[in-house]
Design a protein around this nucleic acid. Structure first.
Lengths: 138, 138
DNA sequence: ATAATTCCTATAGTCACTAGAGCTTCAAGA
DNA sequence: TCTTGAAGCTCTAGTGACTATAGGAATTAT
């Protein structure tokens, strides 16, 4: 049986975050010691690792809740799990596209300015003031 | 003189957001009508467009506040403005790198799963359970 | 004049945590 | 066994950049 602190050290998830996951219903309410402190077993450690991995991949809490629910019905088909992951992948790809446009625009703005002028002539400030100086929409 | 609603329509910034920007000190407190409603002039419209453009590029409110401050000292050198934009560009690039790693990992996970198995065999669930199945760190 | 729309302030909610206060329990050494 | 310091507990509030709602006042259109 692990204390919340040991569980934290083993998984790299901070103590308040573990309590938060419990509150959000990702971890089942832990057993308690006589003095009301949380005690965890191996299965909790595995589930927390699962949650952490999913968070690292950017999945949000409702999605993780759903994945946990699905993972408990081992005989059901996995189409739903696949869909959740695929939708997330699509969202990540969209974000990348948007950020690439931003990158281009910022790069263009920054490279027009060597920091050696006065504010009055500064391309950074002028570009922000005048959308017409942009190359693409963003 | 524009009402807050007209200003909103012209800039595409929602009414509550305009009030929020005022509260955050990005827009100066507007003049008021006899009945205490905000009234804007051309210079406010320009500043709001500036703010909006900067937000679209992903700059946060403190950065925009600083850019506005700088833009009011037209004879100062623009090194600071340049630095703010360059730092933001670097942050955007880092985000892209991180998202690309995520994309790879998710793509690998999703493409191992065609949605036709049971949860028990599902690669999505297995990959989340076992970090050892990952190709790279993330 | 009246009705419909817009405006006002103030408060609370979003997401996934993080920080702090004030208190209790636990583990280790003397 | 006693003490001390670390770790635990609950509850509340703060983060960023808004968004939503409530309850009321002002403005605009008919």
């Amino acid at each position: 049986m692990l204390s919340i602190g040991s569980l934290s050290k083993r998984t790299g998830v901070k103590v308040p975050t573990i309590r938060y996951y419990e509150q959000m219903g990702l971890l089942k309410a832990a057993e308690r010691s006589e003095g009301n402190q949380r005690r965890y077993e191996r299965s909790d450690l595995e589930r927390l690792a699962f949650i952490r991995h999913a968070r690292d991949l950017g999945l949000d809490i409702p999605a993780i809740r759903e994945l946990i629910r699905l993972s408990e019905h081992s005989q059901q088909p996995c189409a739903d799990a696949d869909r959740i992951a695929a939708e997330h992948l699509a969202a990540v790809r969209e974000k990348i596209v948007r950020l690439r446009k931003l990158e281009q625009e910022l790069d263009r703005i920054v490279s027009h300015c060597d920091g050696g002028h006065s504010i009055e002539e500064c391309y950074v400030i002028r570009a922000l003031s005048d959308h017409g100086l942009c190359e693409s929409e963003h």
